[in-house]
Write a protein that binds this DNA or RNA. Structure first.
Lengths: 237, 237
DNA sequence: CCAGAAATTAGAACAGATTACAATAAGTGT
DNA sequence: ACACTTATTGTAATCTGTTCTAATTTCTGG
């Protein structure tokens, strides 16, 4: 038998030598290595490891853009990235971890895009819808990839900053968080909207919704969920 | 290469001989066999097929209750159900189909339970929360199973009556549908609540939410989403 | 009860993810 | 430069879902 998942010691290096860990955002295998102090964050042993990781994620994304997860086979990824299969597994303990890494990049792209051109709608709900639909369009440009990513994210044991991250983003654009961060309730509502979005996205990927239907449904949900979010004025803190 | 999934002809028998199909609710392989007339519903060739199917689903559920999907291996299921691997695959073209079948049973149980003891809360939202939390408790009795099922459902290519079914149930208990069925908007709202529930359930399974937190979040969402559902009175049709 | 159609079976075969391992290359501290 | 720890590489092996096949059994309609 074999360990199904989780509870693996630490990523690549993190032994007591305090050397490093190639992984940056991925490799979130559910358990922290006990006794191992902090994490020098993006602390990678060498630059070549950074690049190696990058090559891997890149190769993975490229492959996934084509035939989806199916096409993104570990052997192929390793080959394309120019690393040995074992190495690939050292960086990403499972295919899911790799997928998560790919997604993380996508989200970062979205966040950047939002910063560059913030949603302009008048109401908090409107702005939230804006963001979600922008994300939707972005993802739907590569349906195979989107499908693979979304599903994998939902499936995985791996820590998924996804929902929380999207929720935080929504609160931000809706203009919700006071100086001491968002309310419990706001988090709940934003989280709810995020999960509705994910669900609609999945339905769209399954071909059971058109872009319009998705937008409509998200609008309906957003209107209700974000109705008493702070209006665009009253920036009291 | 091999066909990844979907678009398989018809379940077990459905050729032109109009014989039958062992499968009852599962086996939703994304495509109907073209040209094949209606479906005599629960029309199974023989009773033994009914039983065989039952044994299979039963075995699958039992296994999943233990180690989750991981433990529910096709070979093992076949063995436990006392059928050949090939037969298992004839009944359920893929593991997902089998999982769907297992879930269907669970949902049926819930529906029955709801009928037997309808939610008593005063508001539509309250009743919806009642139902969802009851479902949650039921599922959480077998965490491994629940986890396996929920995830698999989200992952699969297979038709998932899940969301829609739960949405329908919610509308029913909330007292929403007029004679000509629920509104588009009601469907959207109930669907939204259902997806929030699924998400929270997942988070709970991941150990990131307590039962209370889930309830709280669902209440918050339900209050907003079901606020203008028909009040408990005015049963005009 | 017989002939043909469909189902079931046992078991081999295949595919892709994951693991194991021995040999070699790199990086580090002194 | 040396000894030592950690990474990387190749490659074989393992595990599990899925497919295939030939032989056998079960049905169904006369």
């Amino acid at each position: 038998m074999r360990t199904p998942h989780a509870t693996i010691e630490a990523p690549p290096t993190p032994r007591l030598t305090g050397t490093s860990a190639p992984s940056t955002a991925g490799t979130v295998t559910t358990e922290r290595a006990p006794g191992v102090h902090s994490e020098p964050s993006t602390d990678v042993r060498t630059k070549s490891q950074h690049q190696r990781r990058k090559r891997i994620v890149q190769a993975a994304a490229a492959l996934a853009s084509r035939g989806g997860v199916e096409a993104m086979q570990m052997r192929t990824v390793a080959e394309r990235a120019g690393v040995a299969l074992g190495t690939l597994y050292r960086y990403f303990p499972s295919k899911m971890d790799l997928v998560v890494a790919v997604v993380s990049e996508e989200i970062e792209l979205l966040e950047t895009s939002i910063e560059r051109r913030p949603p302009a709608a008048a109401t908090p709900a409107g702005r939230a819808v804006d963001v979600l639909m922008r994300a939707t369009r972005g993802l739907m440009r590569e349906p195979e990839l989107a499908d693979a990513l979304i599903r994998s994210l939902i499936m995985t044991e791996v820590e998924t900053p996804f929902g929380d991250r999207m929720a935080a983003l929504l609160i931000r654009v809706a203009g919700g968080a006071g100086t001491d961060g968002p309310t419990e309730e706001q988090l709940a509502l934003a989280g709810a909207l995020a999960s509705v979005w994910v669900h609609e996205l999945l339905e769209m990927l399954r071909g059971r919704r058109t872009h319009e239907q998705v937008q409509h449904r998200i609008e309906i949900a957003a209107d209700r969920l974000f109705s008493d979010f702070r209006s665009p004025s009253s920036t009291a803190n």
